[in-house]
Write a protein that binds this DNA or RNA. Structure first.
Lengths: 353, 353
DNA sequence: ACGTATAGTCGAAGCGCTTCGACGGCACGT
DNA sequence: ACGTGCCGTCGAAGCGCTTCGACTATACGT
């Protein structure tokens, strides 16, 4: 008892096979009357078009691939939301989303996958500033779109977090709270040098935002561990005791900072304000106090990526879609008014006795 | 300049189309010599078999679906690892993984998807104790496997976290640290009643482990918020002041507990030990102190789920595979030796003045 | 020597669909 | 009245592959 075919539907509706196809896809006009007969036959049989056959004949599989780095140890709730957002958007538009976990540099693997003609297009996640995968896709001529973007993206479609704007928002919020000495805590220098977009763009955004506000930008790279966070923070406060607020890209290091602050006897947000950049609620709510954060609209980005790609696949005019989404500020408990530095210094002196 | 077809390979190697197919799949013997010629032709042309055509002809698409609840607000790093683990395993075995985000109860939607004959089998995530999706899949006769399992799973294949064992391990660890009064913090009663497997099984495991160790099991349901965690903890300590350790299934509530403990002047782990059950490193490392946790082998579970399913698809003997994976204990800073309760009582008295 | 199995290959018939060309019919304009 | 054009439908030709039956050549047992 296998699935009904279009042929069976046609027989039951007393029409030719092709007429059923036209009725289904609207490719050619079909009279109201026959269309009704066909619909009825379809629902009586519980007919669903065979996806593979349709794809083979039409050369459009209605499948798109989501390309993301394999074994992403640094991934969390944010990335999961990209994926689910993308999958839902695809489903809503009648597409299937397949997952292609591939090493960023395993370009030949990607090429093999693409050559199987399984997918109509590719959505690339975690795009680096210079990204071989993008170069390959361009060269092969596969339609693609990105979540993130390389440094030269002027001629490509993408949806990305607006890191510059996000950093500006963080700085603006802290300035509004009265802070005048704000430091920026980045990921490691290695990641930055490797062209990790979020790291590079947020750093640039911070630099710019600080100067625009008339502040002296202070930045630190930091490994993605609590210990590194402690160390970098100690060094930072040594070098710049006047710092009262921190904007951090680095969640794990942030925990270290909070620890270091605590061991100095500093309270957050009373003695130090922290704003966490690009943090999911899931993570920001785990600390004490919970982190005031700029939360990415991850699901929305996934959705946008898919929409952009499908737009490209279905329209002929093939327009460029480039969308930057800022993060949303969620005020929790880690940022407050600028503290009295003198008082703070006393605390530190006391705790280091 | 479209992709080369098998026909072109055949021509170039001076053999029949079917011979190429045999050489590729090993369906029938092909002489060493011709096989080499064919291989060469394939690599010269950069041939990759057309996935859709292959699927249509063979009735095996080599695509499997991953079914997971739409808009999973409670999802995090653990679930992402299921997905990536599954995707990698599928890829390693020559399969593609498509994502089907569907409401748990939207069974007709699932039926439509299955009828498209796009996938050879389905891997179901987040299985409830009683799950309509499973019933549907069984009834339609689609091969499937699960991450998680319904209450009556004796005749189905699955891979699941061993919640009972995980809870036993947590209890054992706390007992070993000298704790004799251990409380269990669950998710909400609603989730429990809805047949949320982790909640139900961990609760059972705790009950059993506590009794086996000669302890009186103390359990609490708790909403998934820090505030609920605070309230439930206060009530718990009121009712059972002798409790020195907590095993928690509920990460968000755990934060509330830590907060409540801190406001009593209690230090963790000195005055209260906490072990977090089924927590990813990502989350467990955000608190101060970081949480000693039982971490699920999520990627491994995803992999197992896929392997199980593919085994079912490719073998004829269709054997049952049922795997339970315990979580691994990762010792961080939230659990320590059983405290001096008298001292703790003093702290509490002092802070409530 | 003979039948019989097996290796190695070919051609052709689909898999279930889309799409092209063709064709009859009816509505137009003139 | 007659072309012209579009509506609505049909049949057939693929899409790129797997698989079946058939065929030849070689190896085997007796």
């Amino acid at each position: 008892m296998s699935a009904p075919t279009m042929q069976e539907v046609a027989k039951r509706a007393n029409v030719a096979l092709s007429t059923v196809s036209y009725a289904l896809n609207g490719t050619r006009p079909v009279s109201e009357e026959t269309r009704l007969r066909i619909w009825q036959a379809m629902s009586e049989l519980g007919y669903q078009p065979h996806a593979l056959a349709r794809g083979l004949a039409s050369k459009r599989s209605h499948i798109i691939a989501l390309l993301f780095p394999a074994l992403p140890r640094g991934f969390g709730a944010t990335e999961l939301e990209f994926v689910t957002g993308a999958a839902e958007a695809a489903q809503g538009r009648g597409y299937h989303l397949v997952l292609w976990p591939t090493e960023i540099h395993a370009v030949s693997e990607l090429q093999q996958l693409v050559r199987q003609s399984l997918v109509d297009g590719v959505l690339v996640m975690e795009v680096r500033l210079r990204d071989e995968r993008i170069e390959l896709l361009q060269q092969i001529g596969v339609p693609f779109s990105m979540i993130g973007r390389p440094s030269t993206a002027s001629d490509m479609s993408f949806a990305d977090i607006d890191f510059e704007q996000t950093t500006r928002d963080a700085v603006a919020y802290l300035v509004q709270l009265g802070h005048r000495q704000i430091a920026f805590l980045n990921h490691s220098e290695e990641l930055f040098d490797a062209g990790y977009g979020p790291s590079v763009r947020a750093a640039a955004g911070f630099e710019q935002a600080a100067r625009a506000a008339g502040l002296t930008p202070i930045s630190r790279f930091c490994g993605d561990t609590a210990l590194a966070g402690q160390e970098v923070f100690e060094e930072l406060i040594q070098a710049h005791p006047e710092v009262t607020a921190l904007a951090s890209m680095n969640e794990r290091a942030t925990v270290g900072v909070m620890q270091a602050a605590a061991s100095r006897g500093w309270k957050i947000p009373d003695d130090l304000s922290i704003v966490s950049l690009v943090s999911s609620a899931r993570v920001a709510e785990m600390t004490l106090p919970p982190l005031t954060a700029l939360t990415p609209q991850s699901a929305e980005l996934g959705r946008l990526g898919v929409e952009t790609l499908i737009g490209q696949l279905e329209e002929d005019h093939n327009e460029l879609v480039q969308r930057l989404l800022p993060c949303r500020l969620v005020i929790r408990g880690s940022a407050g008014p600028s503290p009295d530095i003198a008082r703070r210094a006393l605390l530190t002196a006391a705790s280091t006795d």
